[in-house]
Amino acid sequence: MSSDDHGLLPAELAEAARPAIAEARGKPARDAARILAEAGLTGVCAQEDDGGMALGLSFALAIAEEAGAGQLRFPLLDQILLAQAFAGQDIAGRIAAGEALGVIGWEGARDGLLRLSDDCDCDVVLVPTGQGADLIERAGLTATPTPLLDPDAPQIWLDVGAARKIGSLSGEQMADLRRAGEALYGGFVTGAAANALALSSDYLAARVQFGRPLSSKQAVRHHLARMKLLLEMSRAALARSLARDELGNPRDTRPAFLGAVGNAIWTLEKAIHLHGGMGFTWEVPLHYSLRDIRKIETAFGAGRLARQVAQDFIRAA
């Protein structure tokens, strides 16, 4: 936790962030960036000299959950991470102020191609390399969208072969950023799951079949109870992953991230199912979260990551 949090609790900050997230929702990326920056959210972890609030990652985690619950379809977490990682550099201040937009291509480029969940008409892109990461300019690069999973916000392949590099992170900096990213994106999908549980509980308490609310049926109650179980377990794992271990070393955030993604997918898919025919419509907003979570899963290469976590543990056993 930061030394200068003014006695503020992460949950209180998240609560205060709610209106800005709601206002930014559905706005074009540049407008959303300005709204969120004004509320201090893009710079929550950035240094004060860069216009940030210099708060610890547990605050960003609470905001991430709020953004997931509020179905914010803007890469707020990338802004938070980049504004912190490039501390003291011009770009950090511009991102914190909502003047510049950056996104992160978590898996790095293969054959010059970089996968992005959504490029949001951004200015800069962070591209992990073997040694660290390069910050490149987005302008002038060719993008190939793959819109089937998410037509409103297509995943894209960015050709970064001829990109202009304007900054970089060391291996250690990138490792820190990746840990933070895993925890925050874990928080985002967990927020999405919390929202899906809330929507489902309300819907099933109101939807009457067989003369009673469907929430009286044990099969339905148990599905909802399992959502709650997984939600609390995701939260517990994520909060712990950000705390240092007994020896003061950073913890591995991958298991918590992977658990949160798996739990959130289960929850969203079940939530859609529990809404019946309604759940299959575009109207009921659950599908946005499902698309977001699946895109995050892909962006981090979750399947490969899980096998890597296991491999590391096997090797050390």
């Binding site: 609390e232 377990m233 995701s234 939260r235 517990a236 794992a237 994520l238 909060a239 712990r240 992953s241 298991p255 918590a256 992977l258 658990g259 798996g262 399947g303 990551l305 899980a306 096998r307 890597q308 976590v309 296991a310 491999q311 543990f313 096997i314």
Partner: peptide
């Protein structure tokens, strides 16, 4: 232990263990 499916399952178990630890500490 080189098998991808086995590693998947071990990876899952590790996530569950972390969640339980966090839950108990919480």
């Amino acid at each position: 232990l080189d098998d991808g499916a086995v590693r998947d399952r071990i990876g899952q178990v590790l996530g569950q263990i972390d969640a339980l630890k966090g839950f108990v500490e919480g």
